[in-house]
Nucleic acid binder design. Structure first.
Length: 178
DNA sequence: ATTGGGATCGTCT
DNA sequence: GACGATCCCAATA
């Protein structure tokens, strides 16, 4: 039950991402286990950081372990955590979580859905945790529950983007857990 | 079970 | 002025 320190995130996103599987994400009075995550580095044409620093992506270039939240499609928020050293423009996109605590609260935000589909997508996750642009730049609250990351996470393909689709950057906890 | 379209606005060209 | 690191529902098979 130790909280992950900023140093945990001060590594390359492609290393941090699989290491975050099965960790506990806490925000907005609810908690969930991270089961899908995607790494975005600055050399990735699909990354917001690919064309350098802007007002929007500034958090990704800042110190590690902060929430980078953006708004897209005119209606969805997506939640990332900055990784790498300050000045690196990189991070990991939280794609799916298994609800652990505060399910009623999640349902209040998401509508009366089954647990399984409360936070099984980037936009759903942000909504279930009540995360918006107002929380951009805050310290991420992630814990190690003592559940090890999967030894062989399921990898890719990436979705929702048009470039670098085949890069092995999307990690997921396998259906059959060890 | 799978597919396709519409919603909707901040950000960058 | 175009286009998303998406989601949900309706329609088809």
């Amino acid at each position: 039950m130790r909280r992950l320190p900023p140093e945990f995130f001060a590594r390359d996103a492609t290393v941090v991402a699989p290491d975050l599987l099965n960790k506990r994400l806490v925000a907005g009075g609810v908690a969930g286990r991270i089961i899908e995550i995607e790494a975005y580095t600055s050399d990735d044409p699909a990354s917001h950081c690919y064309r350098g620093r802007t007002a929007r992506n500034a958090v990704m270039f800042g110190p590690p372990g902060r929430l980078y939240i953006y708004f897209t499609y005119g209606m969805h928020h997506c939640v990332n955590i900055s990784t790498g050293l300050e000045g690196d423009g990189q991070g990991v996109l939280l794609r799916a979580v298994e609800p652990l605590e505060g399910i009623e609260r999640m349902q209040a935000r998401r509508g009366p859905r089954a647990d399984r589909i409360l936070a099984d997508g980037p936009g759903k996750l942000a909504q279930a945790f009540g995360l918006t642009l107002a929380h951009n730049g805050e310290l991420a609250e992630v814990y190690d529950d003592g559940v090890a990351p999967p030894t062989t996470p399921r990898v890719g393909p990436r979705v929702g983007i048009t470039k670098a689709v085949d890069w092995p950057r999307r990690f997921r906890v396998p259906e059959n857990r060890p």
